[in-house]
């Protein structure tokens, strides 16, 4: 007798929420971090640094996230004969390096997009290069980055579902488990999973809209 309902599916999926959020938060933090490092790397005066960062970005943007994830999880331990990779580490590493590469282009683009006159005015006030970046360029560039950063947060949330494929017990993993024993419940299970993700995405959607508002104000329009 198949007598499971939404009320039975719900608590099962709920067990995975904390893992999903954990992967989301860690990946987001590292993605942003990498985005800034690589974004500045691409703007470096040192050719070697610039080329190297460019190489990293092309590699990670040129391949598929799911391939990168499997590569980190299955191939790296074999390549170096070490078992560094916990699932969490492989998952967060793959997602962060992938989205860090994409977002580094936003960091770079925003810094370049700050009006040239801003840097000149800062020079005329005798600021050091570091002060120019910290006090004048970055505050404006970050405002420009915000909406895209918000968009990518939603992308990262969606990407976290991949970690179920390397055995992390996130929302999708629990859903898949339940489906494998109750195939008839598949519609309820997957619809509910989608709703779970959507509810997690909602605050991010509103955050992104808010970011768009902030971004519209307070940027130089010479």
């Amino acid at each position: 007798m198949i007598d499971i309902s939404i009320l039975d599916v719900f608590p099962v999926l709920l067990k995975g929420v904390s893992v999903t959020i954990q992967v989301l938060v860690l990946s987001a933090i590292f993605s942003y971090l990498i985005a800034f490092i690589a974004g500045f790397g691409r703007l470096s005066k040192n050719v070697l640094v610039r080329k190297f960062t460019g190489f990293y970005i092309e590699i990670f943007r040129g391949t598929s996230l799911i391939v990168q994830l499997f590569w980190f999880y299955y191939a790296i331990p074999m390549l170096f004969n070490v078992q560094v990779g916990s699932e969490l580490m492989a998952g967060v590493l793959a997602i962060s390096l992938n989205y860090g590469a994409y977002m580094s282009e936003i960091v770079r683009g925003s810094i370049i997009a700050v009006d040239k006159g801003q840097r000149e005015a800062a020079t005329a006030l005798n600021m050091t290069r570091f002060q120019q970046m910290r006090l004048v360029i970055l505050p404006q560039a970050v405002r420009m980055m915000l909406p895209e950063f918000g968009n990518y947060l939603i992308q990262i949330l969606k990407a976290t579902s991949l970690v179920s494929l390397i055995g992390m017990t996130d929302i999708l993993y629990h859903g898949n488990m339940l489906r494998s024993t109750n195939i008839a419940m598949a519609p309820t299970i997957y619809l509910l999973i989608l709703v779970f993700y959507f509810i997690l995405a909602l605050p991010l959607i509103f955050l992104t809209r808010k970011a768009e508002d902030i971004s519209k104000k307070g940027v130089a329009s010479s």
Binding site: Q118, A121, A124, L125, N126, L135, R143, G218, A220, S222
Partner: peptide, 26 residues
């Protein structure tokens, strides 16, 4: 010191902050 054709004020700072920022940091 220099004054520019297109002003080049710092849009993310108030008028007062525009004036004080270099005094404080430079």
């Amino acid at each position: 010191g220099m004054v520019f054709q297109h002003f080049n004020l710092f849009p993310h700072m108030t008028i007062l902050e525009n004036c004080t920022t270099a005094l404080i940091h430079v």
